[in-house]
């Protein structure tokens, strides 16, 4: 059984962003400009566990993006994925969520024989949270989103627990499935020293548009969404008012008065 994990390179969580003429750039005071999308660490970890505990033969990390996305794939390899593939073509640039799902579906079909595809819940840069569901639909497979535990897997079915807004749901579905995972599912491991050495030597194959049979349009021309206008968050109006007083009792009294005035109680 093959497992595919989809992972993206995103700015580090401490990155400081700036925008000029609608172009977003960032750097990181800690010197870590790009990382694996934090939510995807759980997807990668779960994929590796399927190999360790459920006899998956291959765990293949898949990314769509530029050359720099190889860094995220190398992290996935260093953690323990058995293979990695980068899908990269100028023709794919500017795809909207549906366009991306068409590309994932084509790549997953080309990998062949995958029974479980794992996505993270959300990418922190585009913040859409729809990739797993859309890819499932494009593949015609069952989607299982917000998975917080894989309860059991047999040759032809899977049972998972899903973390919904109002509780935990247990669902059983026949394979193949596309799942997205939430943080509760596991504790991602750190890449081992050996893993990092192996990953650095790995040759990551790059698939172009011509290598895939994508069903439907991709790239900016086929996109039905415009998100080009990006801007900084306006600073919060007014600065903090520090509540002083002779005693704590007096301070909290003033604060409570203010909060009633603000009508938030």
């Amino acid at each position: 059984m093959k497992v595919v994990v989809c992972t993206k390179q995103t700015p580090s969580t401490t990155a400081v962003f700036s925008i000029k003429n609608g172009i977003v750039s960032w750097d990181d005071p800690g010197g870590k400009p790009n990382v694996v999308n934090p939510w995807d660490e759980y997807a990668i970890e779960e994929g590796i566990r399927l190999k360790e505990n459920h006899g998956a033969s291959d765990v293949i990390a898949l990314a769509i993006g530029g050359e720099e996305s190889k860094e995220a794939l190398k992290t996935a390899l260093a953690m323990g994925c058995t293979g990695a593939i980068l899908v990269s073509d100028d023709a794919f640039a500017g795809s909207d969520a549906v366009g991306s799902a068409r590309i994932w579906a084509a790549a997953i079909n080309k990998i062949g024989d995958a029974k479980i595809v794992i996505f993270g819940k959300l990418t922190i840069d585009d913040n859409m949270g729809v990739a797993a569901m859309m890819t499932a639909r494009k593949l015609g497979w069952t989607p299982l989103t917000f998975v917080s535990a894989i309860k059991s897997i047999s040759a032809d079915s899977i049972t998972v627990e899903r973390l919904l807004d109002d509780g935990k749901e247990t669902v059983t579905a026949p394979l193949p499935v596309v799942i997205s995972v939430v943080k509760e599912i596991n504790e991602p491991r750190y890449p081992s020293f050996m893993g990092i050495r192996k990953a650095n030597r790995a040759e990551i194959p790059v698939w172009k548009a011509a290598d895939l049979s994508v069903n439907g349009g991709t790239g900016a021309a086929a996109s039905k969404v415009d998100w080009s206008h990006i801007f900084a968050i306006p600073p919060r109006v007014g600065s903090v008012e520090m509540i002083e007083g002779d005693s704590i009792a007096e301070q909290v009294k003033i604060l409570v008065d203010k909060l009633f005035e603000e009508k938030v109680i």
Partner: peptide, 23 residues
Amino acid sequence: DSTRGNDLAAWVAAELDAGLVTD
């Protein structure tokens, strides 16, 4: 954009090849 609303929006957009903006 609840867990279920997000699922449904994504499914329908993929099925109909429609444009979707979340959140």
